[in-house]
Amino acid sequence: MLFVVVLSVAMAVGAIAYIARLFVRDHKIDTRGRDIRVLVEDVRHVGTNDSGSVTIAYRLSWIEGGEARYVEGRETLLARRVPLVRKGCEVDIRYLDDDHLSFVFDA
Rank of each mutant, 00 (worst) to 15 (best):
D26R: 15
A12P: 00
R80P: 00
S8P: 01
S51G: 02
V43K: 05
D30A: 15
R74P: 01
G73M: 06
L22K: 12
L78N: 12
G66N: 03
E75A: 15
H45R: 12
F23K: 15
E64L: 02
L78F: 12
R69A: 06
R32W: 07
T31N: 07
A68F: 01
R86P: 00
I19M: 11
L96Q: 04
A17K: 09
G65F: 04
E75H: 12
A79Y: 02
H45M: 09
V82I: 09
G14A: 10
R25L: 13
I16E: 11
H100L: 09
S8C: 14
L60N: 06
R59Y: 00
H27I: 07
A17H: 06
R80Q: 09
A107I: 02
L77H: 06
Y70R: 11
Y18H: 15
R32D: 13
A15Y: 13
T55P: 00
L77Q: 08
M1K: 14
T76P: 03
V43S: 03
A79M: 04
T55K: 12
V5Q: 11
W62F: 05
V85D: 06
V82M: 04
E41S: 04
H27Y: 14
L96P: 07
V46G: 02
G66I: 03
A79T: 03
Y58K: 04
V38N: 07
G47Q: 07
S102D: 12
K87G: 02
C89P: 00
G47N: 12
V104N: 01
D99Q: 08
R34L: 08
A17T: 07
E64I: 01
R37S: 11
D97R: 03
D35C: 02
V82K: 06
H100Q: 08
Y70D: 06
L78W: 13
I19Q: 12
A57R: 13
L7P: 00
L2M: 13
A15E: 13
F103N: 09
R74L: 12
R32C: 09
V9D: 04
D30S: 14
R59A: 10
A57C: 01
F3L: 14
V46N: 04
E41M: 07
P83K: 11
L60P: 08
Y95V: 05
T48H: 08
A107G: 10
V82N: 04
V13W: 10
G88L: 04
E41D: 15
D50P: 00
G66L: 02
D30N: 15
V9I: 15
V5W: 05
R86N: 07
R74H: 09
E72P: 00
P83I: 07
A15V: 11
Y58F: 15
